[in-house]
Each structure stands twice: as C-alpha cells, then as structure tokens.
C-alpha cells in the first residue's frame, strides 16, 4: 500500500518545484499527447532527451520515479506480450500456434516505451507539486466550466480533502489492524472468500471512523463560515512569473516538434 507515488511530494529546491502548478499540469498533458503522436527513431531519441533533462532538472532521485512503475509493471508485461503475439506480419519464430512477428516486436517495444515514459512523466509532476497546489491549478484551469454549471470549486475542494485524508486513513487502518490482530484476527491466510470475510473487522471500524471524521470536518468548516466557492479568496493566489512564460514557450516548441515528428517521422520504428 505504501508504494503509491500519486500524491507523494518530494521536497527539493529545483526550477520544476518553483514552476506554477498550472504550467506543470498543462505541460504533462502536452507531454502525454506528444508521446502518442511521435513516430520514428529520431522522435523517440528526442523524447528521451527531453525526459532525461526534466528528470535532471527536478532534482528528485530517479528511483522515486521508478517506484511508480511498480504499480503498472503487470499491465506493461501484458501489453508487451499481447502486442508481440497478436500483431499480424512477418513471423520471426513460432512456438506451437503462436508466432512472434517483426511488426509485433516493434509495436511491443513502442508501447513499452510510451507507457513507461507516461508514468515517469506524470511522476515528475506529482513529485514536484504538492497535492494542494495541483488541485488549485485544476480549479483555476477548469474555472471556465463554471459557465456551464460545473461545480469546479466543490470538486477541487473534495479532491484536496480526499488527498489530505489518505495518510490519516492509512494510519487508522494500521492501528485497527493491529488491534484486531491482538484479538486473534488473521488477515493473511485462507482462500479469497475467507480473506474477504476476515476484512470485516477492519472495514467496519474504518468506515465508522471515516464517517465520524467527515462529520467533524464538516462541523469545523461550518464553524469557520465556509459556504462554498462564492467570493472565496486564496491565501497564496496563483500568479505567473517570467519563468512560467518561458516554460510555456518551451512547451509550445516541444509540441510543434512532436507534430513534426508525427508528420515527417517514419523509418523502421
């Protein structure tokens, strides 16, 4: 449970940490879209260089980003196997009725790179941005949707609260689990059905306490006159600085390059 990278901010003093969260959010979107546009060997080399530069700039140890990979390693392996086996084309070798094709191998390689770069790219954002900054950025970026009655502020408030409560609930889970183990509960052995029923002594108290906490929080917010987003100001409003504009320009250049690679790229990959 502890190797979820989402919302695991890594404090460091780098240019990426200082960037406006909106820039990082949009930048990550542009990066992900570009990943799926780019074609050709030159294109992949280009993306790799850009990603390596970003990793270096972030001053976050590379191992932290690889931790996020652990969660998708299973999906990655399945994708690679399926692409290798079920892409029609020129067979390299055949086992029984399954054959690995040249096109399949290339396709599998491409998917593996895209998926792992996607995870590393988004980890850079979550590792250099606190969850609160991120929800602020989303609230700000999606605020035009208020016109069509989307409750943008409420959604982002819910997200901040949810993120804030993850560590608290993890601690609570740990505590209740220990208390039940002390009463002879067994969370480790048995078949699937047995294991699920064994979770009841953990889940019931956890839900009770989660509702209790939610109730207390609502009361505390009301006591401090919270009444939704209308007319609410922020303690640290988001403001663009010079480095943010430069980042936007670089981002546009990157997107343009990606489009070029999409149109003119080719070659064997």
């Amino acid at each position: 449970m502890r190797n979820i990278t989402i919302g695991q901010y890594y404090p460091a003093d780098s240019i990426l940490h200082k960037l406006d969260p909106r820039v990082k959010f949009l930048g990550t979107l542009v990066f992900i879209v570009s990943l799926f546009l780019i074609k050709g060997l030159a294109g992949y080399v280009f993306v790799t260089v850009v990603l390596a530069t970003l990793v270096k700039l972030s001053k976050v140890p590379f191992g932290m980003m690889l931790k996020g990979m652990k969660a998708i390693i299973f999906i990655l392996i399945i994708t690679v196997i399926f692409n290798m086996l079920f892409t029609p084309g020129e067979a390299i070798f055949t086992i029984w009725r399954l054959s690995v094709t040249k096109e399949g191998a290339v396709q599998a390689f491409r998917m593996a790179i895209r998926l792992s770069y996607l995870i590393i790219g988004s980890s850079i954002m979550t590792l250099t941005t606190t969850p609160n900054q991120l929800t602020d950025a989303m609230e700000n970026l999606f605020s035009p949707l208020k016109v069509i009655k989307v409750p943008v502020h409420e959604i982002s408030m819910m997200m901040s609260i949810a993120l804030r409560f993850i560590p608290i609930l993890m601690e609570e889970t740990d505590k209740i689990m220990k208390a039940q183990i002390a009463r002879g509960a067994d969370f480790e052995s048995g078949n699937l059905i047995k294991r699920v029923t064994n979770m009841i002594p953990l889940l019931v108290p956890l839900f009770v306490s989660a509702f209790q906490r939610a109730n207390d929080l609502a009361m505390a917010m009301e006591a401090r006159c919270y009444h939704g987003g209308e007319g609410r100001t922020q303690m640290k409003p988001l403001r663009y600085e010079k480095r943010d504009y430069i980042a936007y320009i670089l981002m546009l250049a990157f997107a343009a390059a990606a489009v070029c690679f999409c149109i003119f790229g080719g070659g064997w990959i």
Binding site: K175, I176, K178, Q180, A182, G184, D186, P205, V208
Partner: peptide, 19 residues
C-alpha cells in the same frame, strides 16, 4: 497467534475496534 491470546493488549481508545 497463540502468544497474542496469552498476552492481551488493549490499545488506546480501544472502542475504535468494535465492529
């Protein structure tokens, strides 16, 4: 597991474990 029934431990605010 047998040990834990010989050495009983009541945590702080144990009422949070009722289910």
């Amino acid at each position: 597991r047998a040990l834990r029934s010989k050495v009983g431990l009541v945590f702080q605010y144990p009422e949070h474990q009722l289910f």
